[in-house]
Design a protein around this nucleic acid. Sequence first.
DNA 1: ACGCAAATTGACAGCGCTGTCATTTCTGTC
DNA 2: GACAGAAATGACAGCGCTGTCAATTTGCGT
Lengths: 337, 337
Amino acid sequence: MRVRLEDVARATGVSPKTVSRVLNEESSVKESTRQKVLAAMESMNYRPSPAARGLAGSRSFLVAMLYDNNDNPASTYLAEIQDGVLDACDAHRFSMMACPLRMRGKDFIRRVDALVHDHHIEGVIVTPPLTDHAPLLQRLRELGVPHASISPQHRQGAIGVCMDEQQAAKALVTHLIEQGHRRIGHILGIANHGASRWRLAGYKDALTAAGLPVDPQYILQGEFSFGSGVLAARQLFDLPEHPTAIFAANDDMAAGVMWAANERGLKVPRDLSVCGFDDTPLATQLWPPLTTVRQPSREMGKLAALQLMDHLRGRGHGLLVQVPYTLQLRESTAKAP
Amino acid sequence: MRVRLEDVARATGVSPKTVSRVLNEESSVKESTRQKVLAAMESMNYRPSPAARGLAGSRSFLVAMLYDNNDNPASTYLAEIQDGVLDACDAHRFSMMACPLRMRGKDFIRRVDALVHDHHIEGVIVTPPLTDHAPLLQRLRELGVPHASISPQHRQGAIGVCMDEQQAAKALVTHLIEQGHRRIGHILGIANHGASRWRLAGYKDALTAAGLPVDPQYILQGEFSFGSGVLAARQLFDLPEHPTAIFAANDDMAAGVMWAANERGLKVPRDLSVCGFDDTPLATQLWPPLTTVRQPSREMGKLAALQLMDHLRGRGHGLLVQVPYTLQLRESTAKAP
DNA sequence: ACGCAAATTGACAGCGCTGTCATTTCTGTC
DNA sequence: GACAGAAATGACAGCGCTGTCAATTTGCGT
């Protein structure tokens, strides 16, 4: 009923083991044999059984994408990454399992153990903020499961993909300065997230490079959410000399800033320039459209998955590739009033 | 190295087969034996190997979530559904694979075949607009793979979850009418999507119930995207007697309407009331916040998955459960000018 | 043509579980 | 207390593939 490896072997006149070798792209198969087998597989529409492969060998052709759905950055971000990962997996005949994790208690590690143990997961894609969760990385190492990270903070020896967020933030704030802004507010993301750090660092770099002071009262804590953007913006507006521009560490908070500005009767960009980071769909759905930095999440997911699979296949050592950012200058920023 | 079923059997003093029976919750096991085995499993921290179970038996404890990532409704919608599905799977020791499908050509069906064949997928969660893709459903039937649908159009005998979108839309538009609006525009979603039909039907119902005419010039085609909302809104504004309220078939298009209103210098809600549908995060990130209908996507994903798994376990026949909607009246709607 | 190392290929067991069917142990009944 | 029939358990093969290691073929130098 099902075409088995043995059937292919019989049809080709070789042993099952040889077919297995072809299937697994082992090198010790004569090219002519390989071609014959490949042809037979094709014509018989043979599809190996992952269950059998998993049982017999060690491989499972399964990778897992780990994400934190509690301390969750915008869901579109993760959705795009997932899409990219699936895309790459597809191309390499891997399958992916999505695994939401809650970074709380020991249960967290248990889930990872269970996942790896039960499904023979071969590798893992780790997304922020899990990328720097020491116990997780530690456990993965113990389990011998390679992982590729997306935007990890510790890049030493990491494999995966990253972007120069600091440079991007600096470019963005520099743009504001060039527009004549001198009092520029910044709303931080969740503490300890790499994104928060890099974006703050870039903000400071830009100010310093322009000879402007870094004034702590213009830097407020946020947590990447729309609501936290609103709250922080209100505080900034309450300052005696309120900023003429605000750089929020992500688009959601920038949207919050614009919301708060509306509330105060401040017109964007006439009275206030606003910019964010990530270029989520939201950015172009706001009025006015938001100046931000495009982060190619989908592409990043794909690249990370490719790095991981290359590594698993033993080809290449697995690298941390860097993707370029793009400034998206839109109408939410303008010359200083 | 790994605790196997056999180990548990030895520890309990029964045959492997009996342990297997306990594992699979078969009924013909004496209660006292069952308890002993269960206790041993627990204390030995036994975890069955999905690969072996898949190979030997027919079960895989895997369900797939199928979605169309081309004709994609807002990604947050799918992300929330996925979260709900994963939640339910987790509770029933099932695993889930996310499967983006492109509804084009024969390749589409091939992918489904491959999925079911390769991974022994036991059941499928189908999301709109795949819920009414005849060839897909047909194939699933042929393959003998049960599926649960989320908001299917053909509810006859379907299992899954739905919401009375027509009633919800009617309630929403009725609210507009009560606010004094007489010229109410509607922007349609993608043709043939259930969501588009129901929301239009509800819109008409409300008008008719209030004795108002259904004027075709106020009903424009959209495609659920922000951009299509902008385009449709512009056309509505160009009408000699433009509407004082617009009901867009989803939040993204409603955001587009608000964008276009800004462009025209129309003040929402003073000059124009706008409402959407779905209550995506976007709804509260707009200024003013959007009046819409809350659709509990996460919950729906969870319920659909539960229905599917109940069905797979042979418990219950699998039902089409209906979830309640909630009107979210916010500041984007007000009395007619 | 002969010998030897390297390159290919194959035989066979077994991965951890479940299906099938046989066997044993209970029930309740007369 | 013996017996039919149901309830509970077990023996055994095998799911489709790969690891190990042995067997065979090939290529090449002399």
